[in-house]
Structures are given as C-alpha cells and as structure tokens.
Design a protein around this nucleic acid. Structure first.
Length: 670
RNA sequence: GCUUCUGUAGCUCAGUGGUAGAGCGCGUCCUUGGUAAGGACGAGGUCAUGGGUUCAAGUCCCAUCAGAAGCUCCA
C-alpha cells in the first residue's frame, strides 16, 4: 500500500509499487497525459518513479516553472538522438544541459562528431529529424546501474566522454549509481528527470545556432560542436521569444551606432579601434564635461600623460613582460646607438600617475591625492573577443589613482563607490550587479605578498558590507596588483560587461617604492586606489546606446532640436531661430530639404531628435515656434525665449524636470 | 586564438557559371506645403583582397583580411 499526500492536503491510497504516473491516473486521465514530472517529497523526478510507501507527491504540468527545465533537457536529448540518426555511430555525446537563465538559448548539446561536420544549413535537417522523433512519441525510460555496469554499457555504445565523466566522479557519487535514459534506439547517461515521452516536446522548439566549445571549457582540450536551441511548451511562447530576440537586436549599439552615425570601426584603421563620428563625439564630450564637474567636487585633480612609456617603467609595474600576450608589441629601435630598449603603448595609466606622485615629496597632510585622467590605453585583445564598442583594443578610461594613508583607505573606497552609484543613477542605469573580484591563491599571475592581498580583500569586503550592497564574490577575477569591486551590467542580448571598478592596491606603491612623510617625520607607504566609474568611455557609451535605444536624454542627445520650416519661404525666419537656439548653446539641425513638413517630422523623429520646432507664416509673424516633442507630439506654440528656457532647464538638470508640460515626461518610452 | 557562418551601391538586402539589381538614402528639377513618407529624372559598383578551376566566376575551390554567434581569454 502506498499512501500519497497531495499538495492540497488530500490523501490517496494506491497499491504498493505505484508510480507517480499512477497518482496522476488516479486523479484524471487528462492529468496523466499532460503531466511532465513529479515532485516526490520535494525532489523533482520522473513520473515513472516508483513511490515509497508514504510520501508527498506534487505533479508537475507545463504550467509549473520547474517543468520548463525538464522540457529543455529532454529537447537536448532529442537533439542528440537526431544528430546520431543523421551522422551515425561515430557521434559521441558530451554534455547537453538546459539553460534557464540565458537570454537567447534554452538548451544545447555538445558533440564530438568524428569526421562529420555540422553547419548552419544542417540545422534544418536536424530539426526535421527531431520533429520526427517527437511524432514517434517514444517512451523515455530510466535505468539505474552500478558505475561498472554503466561504464560497460557506455563502452558498448562507444560513448567515451561519458565514461570519462564517470571516472571523474567521486567514489560516493559512483557508489550512488549511474542512470541511463533510453528513448527508442537512443541511450544516454543522464541524471534526469525527463519527459514521459518524446511526444511531450511538442512543436515549440527551434535550433538556433551551431558553435564550437572546448571539452570541459578548457582551451587545451578538443573543440566540440555545440548546437544551441530553445524550447517552450507552447508554439506561441517560442514565437514570442524569437520576436523578443529580434527586438533586442534592434537595440544593439552596433546597429544604432550605424543608423545614427555615432562611431566608426574601420578595418583600414584597425579592428577594435573605434573612432567617434561627430554625433558620437557629442556623447563623449558631454559625459567628459559632466564627469569633470563631479571630479572637481570630489576633490580630484585632472592630469594628462603620454600614451606610451619606456619598457622599463612596465617592468617595474609588472605589466611587462608578464602580460606580453595582451599588449601591442613594444616599439623598439633596430639600429644601434639608442640607450632605450624600447617603449610600450600603455595598457594602463597607473605607472604614469605613480611617477607623477613620485616626483615630489608628500606630507601626510597632502593626502589623499587624487589624480584623474581620461587616459587612452591599448590592449591586444584576442581577435575573437572584439565586439563593437564593448571590447576594443584602443579605449579611454575615466581613470583616477588615489594615493592615501592606510587610515584614509576605507573612506576613500566608500566615496568611489558613491561616485559610481551617483553616475549610474543619473543615467538611469539601475540594473547592475556588484561583484567583488578576488585573487585565486593558487595562481601565480599576481604580484605582492599574501599579507597585502589579505589586507586589501578585507578592506573591500568591509566597505561593501558596511554599505549594504548585494554582491557576489568571484575568485580569480582580481587585477594583478589587487582585488576590486566591479559594477557589471548586461547588454541587449544578455551578455555581461564590467563597467565601473574600484580597486585596492598595496603592491604598486611597493614596486615603485613611493612614500609620504608621516606625522612622526618618517617615510610611510601610501595605499593606491585605481578607480574608473564608467570603466571606459567606449564600453560605457556602447551600453548607454543600448540602454536608451539611441533615444538619449536631452543633455546627451547629439542633435537636440530640429528646425523644420513649413516651406522654403520661411527659411529666413528658420535661420534666425536656429541661430537663437545655437546662441543658447543648443545643438540644432536646420532641415533645408524641399520635403513637406510631414516628411521632415518623420525624418527628425526617426533620427531620434528630442525636439522639433515647426516654423511657418504664423510663427514668423508672431516670432514664435510651434514646438513638437519626439515622443509627446505637438506641444503648442510658444515664444522662442520660453522654448529656450524650457530646454535649457531640461538639459541642465539632466532631464529631472522640464518646463514643457508634464505630458512629455509622462509619455511612455517607445 | 579555436569552431561555424557571413562579406554585392552610403545603409538594408536580392542575385540559377553567361551584360550588376531593388528599397531607403544622395543629387537635380517640378511642387511651396501645417505635425510620421508629394512627384519626375539622375548619379552611384575593384561584387572584401589575392590566387586557382573553367571557353566563361559576384556565383565553384584555396588562402588572407574583416564582421557575426559561441568557446577560451579579459592585468
């Protein structure tokens, strides 16, 4: 006798040896058909699982969140089965998980295909085979074996990667036994659980792309073939997902950057070397000006330094030769007679700033010293890593180095974090996560003593806890000289990028042997903070483009006002208005085309220009403008002075208020 | 760097081994207009680059360069 308690509290008695599926049948045939899996005493398992004598059972249907993972996992198996049908026995399966947090994909499977090759074109054929397997409604059956038996069986199937996986399991894991799942002619090692039959996958799945992936994610291992797909219980959900991906792609900064003429990546100049076109340069100029203001308030001093330095400088800092592979090759002289052994395009600004600190004597009374520079740096990123503005080889950090006493350190870290938060909030970038990047004690890529590292990591943890930030710790993500607090945001297609960063460094001060005179009249070692709230202007603006989908707030908008005369008869008046707006410091485009006003409005709207003024006979006579908001539409007629004042206010408050009626602000974004 | 895919007009993209195409944009002309597309005509091409196959290559093959997705990397 099996006694089952259901989630509603009711109790059902079933014959001994009953399965979760029997429970479903006992309730209704319909439920038995649609149920995906069961939760027995809180553990998700197959419907075929035999129940213990007394247990709590919840049946999972497509409506339950936990079912999705099972669906996608089974989809991966069906994919593997299809690939083996099409490409034969040589196909070995590696891993094929469900992805629940990925923006694009729902599952993948990695294969070692032997001699065979799968390209994008093959996906359709594989998908067709998967549809066949779904139609066949093959029952999916689990078999529990000892590790030895499982290995014997997998060896018979030629699945050597799976055997390797068993061999790498701990002895406890091996002792717990290995599960094999079989559907039709296909058997795979898997923890499960799975759908009842392949038929339950239905039609809501699609294969999306084929890519390479290293076995176990290790570059030294063989490259496998990975096929990505996604699956939903409902075809409509799949369609909605695909539409969402399409929408997201339209926000892509590479697309918008082209449409709006913001920046240029030109292969003649070089990959990963962005150039700011006039409109994009406005974004950069405005951000820089705003930051300079914030830095002045926070007690920073702006400095400038060259973009190259002697090789020896970087030997001292530790950049060279340890990071040789990720730098541009040194500039050296081939002919004899040069005292210098060469120069390096700088991968970081810190050595220059340290030398600037070192040039004079510093009393403890002078500290903290905060040197800020919008410094361009160069790094040799792997070609496969380059990505629009988010991963480039030449970029400009909004960098600063703070030299302070150990006592001042935590307060300085706090104010750096506060600065990052202010900046992110002003730009409405609220969706970010905080990561503490620590060193991997087993790695040799870090400089400095263990004591220095422990101290710095403790400082950082302490501040983050004090500020009550939600954060995750990541081992091995630290800079080579110290741990850091990173601010990570996600781009329009779900990729994560580090923007702001605050780094604590006890090591470069030692390596450069810098000091200040303390109150005891002896030399002391200062601590350095490296910090960049934006990270780099390039990456930050890339993310900003996607965040606003190119529809920037007025203060950042490359063009702020479009002047649209109703006909060429009013060009003189339009010219006069244009000049008055420019005199007020506004960025204005005068539309000289002979189009009708409707076409002019359409063009300005598509160009994402926040405001338009439409000028015709009435306006010319009354010396007024008919204002129009890109989102709000017609704003009515007003004097030029009133229009200018409203825009100046919106610009200078960075959009926090506007004199133009609330209807603009209330209008939902597109 | 690795796997797969892509590269045709300023942009987005069609294009069966046999004379290079469309839409948008751009220019000129007509039109002089009132809140998201007026009309006509026209200019614009090393089909990424270099080899090869072929009577013939934008199209097939190889290499290189660049881009995309993913993996690896990111001081």
């Amino acid at each position: 006798m099996t006694q089952v308690k259901l989630p509603d509290g009711s109790i059902r008695d079933l014959p001994a040896g009953a399965s979760a599926l029997d429970v479903a049948r006992d309730i209704s045939e319909g439920l038995a058909r649609t149920a995906v899996a069961a939760k027995v005493d809180g553990v998700v398992c197959d419907l075929a699982t035999t129940l213990p004598d007394e247990c709590e059972v919840a049946l999972l249907t497509p409506r339950d969140g936990e079912s999705m993972e099972i669906l996608r996992h089974s989809a991966a198996h069906i994919l593997a089965q299809a690939v083996r049908r099409l490409h034969g026995e040589q196909v070995q399966y590696c891993i094929g998980p469900a992805l629940m947090d990925d923006f694009q994909y729902g599952f993948y499977y990695d294969f070692d295909l032997g001699d065979a090759k799968i390209t994008d074109d093959d996906l359709k054929a594989i998908e067709a085979e998967m549809k066949k397997i779904v139609k066949e409604k093959l029952p999916i059956a689990r078999e529990d074996l000892s590790a030895a038996d499982a290995k014997a069986k997998l060896a018979g199937l030629g699945q050597h990667y799976k055997i390797e996986m068993i061999d790498d399991m701990s002895s406890e894991e091996q002792a717990a036994g290995i599960a094999l799942y079989t559907q039709g002619e296909f058997t795979d090692m898997c923890r499960g659980p799975h759908l009842q039959t392949t038929g339950q996958l239905g039609k809501g799945f699609k294969l999306l792309s084929v890519a390479g992936a290293y076995w176990r994610g290790d570059e030294a291992n063989k490259m496998l073939t990975r096929i990505y797909g996604n699956a939903f219980f409902d075809k409509k959900e799949l369609a909605a997902h695909l539409a969402k991906l399409e929408e997201a792609k339209k926000r892509d900064h590479r697309i918008i950057g082209k449409e709006m003429d913001l920046f240029l990546l030109d292969e003649k100049v070089g990959p990963g070397m962005p150039m700011w076109l006039p409109k994009g340069a406005v974004l950069r100029t405005e951000l820089e000006a705003w930051l300079r203001g914030l830095l002045t308030k926070a007690g920073y001093s702006m400095v400038y330094s060259p973009q190259i330095g002697k090789l020896d400088l970087y030997r001292t800092s530790g950049h060279y030769p340890y990071y040789k592979d990720s730098q541009f090759p040194p500039i050296t002289f081939e002919d004899e007679g040069h005292e210098d052994d060469g120069f390096l395009l700088r991968p970081m600004n810190c050595p220059h700033h340290v030398q600037m600190f070192k040039h004079g004597q510093h009393s403890y009374r002078d500290l903290p010293l905060r040197y800020a520079e919008f410094g361009q740096v160069y790094r040799w990123e792997q070609s496969g890593e380059l990505n629009g503005l988010t991963r480039v080889r030449a970029f400009t950090q909004d960098d600063a180095h703070i030299f302070c006493t150990p006592e001042q350190l935590e307060a300085e870290i706090e104010s750096c974090v506060a600065l990052v938060q202010t900046i992110f909030e002003t730009l409405d970038l609220t969706d970010y996560s905080v990561r503490i990047s620590l060193r991997d004690p087993d790695s040799d890529k870090y400089v400095g003593s263990d004591e220095n590292w422990e101290l710095a990591e403790e400082n950082i943890r302490h501040v983050v806890k004090k500020l009550g930030l939600d954060y995750v710790e990541q081992i091995g993500e630290a800079a080579f000289y110290g741990p850091k607090i990173d601010f990570v945001v996600t781009d329009c297609i779900g990729r994560e990028w580090q923007l702001g960063t605050v780094q604590v460094d006890y090591n470069l001060p030692e390596r450069f042997d810098i000091s200040y005179i303390g109150s005891d009249n002896t030399a002391h070692r200062p601590v350095m903070i490296h910090r960049a709230p934006l990270g780099s202007f390039e990456r930050f603006i890339g993310i900003l483009i996607e965040h606003f989908a190119g529809d920037f707030p007025l203060w950042l908008a490359p063009t702020q006002v479009a002047v649209l005369p109703v006909s060429e008869k009013y060009d003189d008046y339009a010219q006069q208005v244009t000049q008055q707006l420019r005199d007020a410091g506004l960025r204005v485009d005068f539309d000289h085309t002979s189009d009708k006003v409707g076409a002019k409005i359409r063009r300005a709207t598509l160009a994402k220009i926040p405001y338009m003024v439409i000028l015709g006979e009435k306006e010319a006579e009354a010396q007024t403008v008919a204002a129009r908001g890109r989102k709000a539409g017609d704003l009515g007629v007003m004097s030029i002075a009133d229009f200018v004042e409203a825009l100046a206010q919106e610009r200078d408050t960075q959009g926090e208020t506007s004199l133009i009626p609330a209807k603009i602000a209330d209008e939902p974004a597109e």
